[in-house]
Each structure stands twice: as C-alpha cells, then as structure tokens.
C-alpha cells in the first residue's frame, strides 16, 4: 500500500510538470492550428533563467517569476518572428520550430555553459513527511498542488472570462470570431505568450525535482508533452490534464514494475488511443 501511494505521488508530480508543458501546446494547436516543436526550448530556458536567478538571489520565488518573464518575452518574440510568417502551413511550422528548438538549445550552452547544472530543492520545500510507513517527499506535493492551482486558474479564465470565451470560440471557428469584430491575432499572441510562460514555469519547477538540468532536457519533456496533447485531444485543456496524469502515472508504475517497458509505455498508450479514439480522449470540436 505505501508503495502504491509513493508511486501515485511520483506519477502525479511528473504528470503535473508534463501538464504545464502540454497545456500551452494544446491551446496553441487548438486555437492557432500551429505545431510548435520549439515548446521544449521554452521549457529549458525557463529552467536555466529561473535556476540561475534562484542561485543568484537565493529565492526560489524570484526564480519562478524570472522563468515566467522569460517565457512571456520569448513567447512574444517567437510569435512575432517565427510563428506569424508560417500560419496555416504545417510543414513550414514543423521545420522552422524544430530549427528554432535547436537554436534555443544551443544558446543555452552559449549563455550558461555546456555542463550539467546541479539544482537543490529550496530549504522550505526540502525533506519529507513520514505518515505511518509512508515517506512523502514535500517537493512532489508542492508540484502537485502548484499544478492543480494552475489548472484551476486557467479553467476559471477559460470558462468564466470574456477572453476565455473568445479563446474557446476561436478553437471552434476562427473566421466567425473575426466576423464578430474580434482581432484574433491579438488573442493568438496572448495564448502563445501564456503557453510559453507555462512551459517556462514547468522548466523551473522540474529542475529541483530532477536535481540537475542540461540543454537537451527540453526535447525529452517536449516529446512527452506532445504525446499528452495527442492522447488528451488536440485543443482540449481538460484533456491535457487528464492525459498528463495518465502518462505520469503510467510512467511511474511501469518504471517500478516493468522497467524495460517504461520508455515504451507512452508510445503504446498513444498508439492505443489513436487506434480507438483518433480524436483523443477529449475532443475540442471544431465547426
């Protein structure tokens, strides 16, 4: 029983990090019809700028804020320079965002050095609680709570505010939204910057969790996030939470019980979903 609880907590924490990355990706795809393969680059930039400011100031909160700002600034620049010219063309999107992903990754090495950077959990989040026989690692609980708060916040924005209403309408029918007098480009930029900020936050939260960061981390997590977007249904925010938790749990249980399958399990999950429900578990209906 204690083992199961540990594995669940582990899986949930990983799932939440993937969710933060996938949430932006799924909205960017659903609303803007853009395949962004550079999303992992934002993740790793968030990790580095956040962790270096954390190391410099000693405050993890400052690190998180810096990561958010990094995400917003990079998101703004990317949308304007890289994404705007390739709206509506998936092949070009894949090529240019993959290329930019590599640029972001190499720039990390230029700015922060090529070596792996060790990261410590901030003191107040370090350590664990012991409940009976179960050891609960505090930082994992922190990530889980953080993830649920972000989900709640964005769920509120999407369902209760005007801009959220416009985003949902835009996922269903972009032309009609414009014909009702709304500048969809502004909404695109807003969604892209928000998605970028979420990716950057995922990066800075992941760093103390894994204990070290390196430039190639972005790609590894981005692949998981893509799998989650496909499983959850492209464009579905709730679907991305559900699928991220599923992938997180599957990874954590498989790593323990069938370790040689733990890398394949996500691919298998995705394949199964694609066979039986090609639109994903949750559908963000168009039209």
């Amino acid at each position: 029983m204690d083992l199961i609880i540990s594995l669940v907590i582990n899986g949930l924490a990983t799932g939440m990090l993937i969710f933060l990355l996938a949430a932006g990706l799924t909205l960017i795809f659903g609303l803007m019809d853009v395949l962004n393969f550079a999303h992992g680059g934002l993740f790793v930039w968030g990790a580095y700028t956040g962790i270096f400011s954390y190391a410099y100031t000693g405050s993890f909160i400052v690190g998180i804020v810096v990561a958010i700002l990094t995400g917003l600034v990079f998101g703004f620049i990317m949308e304007k320079l890289i994404i705007t010219p390739v709206y509506g063309n998936h092949v070009q999107q894949i090529l240019i965002t993959l290329g930019f992903m590599l640029v972001l990754q190499e720039m990390i090495k230029v700015f922060f050095g090529p070596n792996v950077v060790a990261v410590k959990v901030p003191e107040y989040l370090a350590g664990s609680w012991q409940v009976g026989d179960i050891i609960i690692i505090k930082y994992r609980i922190f990530i889980i709570i953080f993830g649920f708060i972000v989900f709640g916040l964005f769920h509120y924005i999407l369902t209760r505010t005007k801009v959220g209403l416009i985003v949902r309408a835009g996922v269903m029918n972009k032309d009609m939204v414009q014909a009702l007098g709304i500048n969809i480009k502004r909404i695109f930029l807003f969604v892209f910057m928000t998605g970028a900020a979420l990716a950057a936050v995922a990066g800075v939260l992941m760093a103390p969790y894994s204990g070290s960061i390196y430039a190639e981390l972005g790609m590894e997590y981005a692949i998981l996030a893509f799998i989650v977007v496909v499983i959850g249904g492209m464009g579905s925010f709730q679907g991305s939470l559900f699928a991220a938790i599923l992938v997180g749990l599957a990874g954590s249980f498989m790593a323990y019980y069938v370790p040689y399958l733990s890398l394949a399990v996500n691919m298998i999950l995705m394949a199964v979903v694609l066979i039986f429900r090609p639109q994903g578990l949750f559908q963000a209906a168009k039209g």
């Binding site: 949902r168 032309d175 209906a285």
Partner: peptide
Amino acid sequence: GIFAQLSVEENIKV
C-alpha cells in the same frame, strides 16, 4: 457559424 460547444448565451456574448 454557430460555436457548437458554447451555449446560446455564450454564442451571443462573444
């Protein structure tokens, strides 16, 4: 061009 998953109210609110 109805937003299929939005309610009547939300369609008008947009």
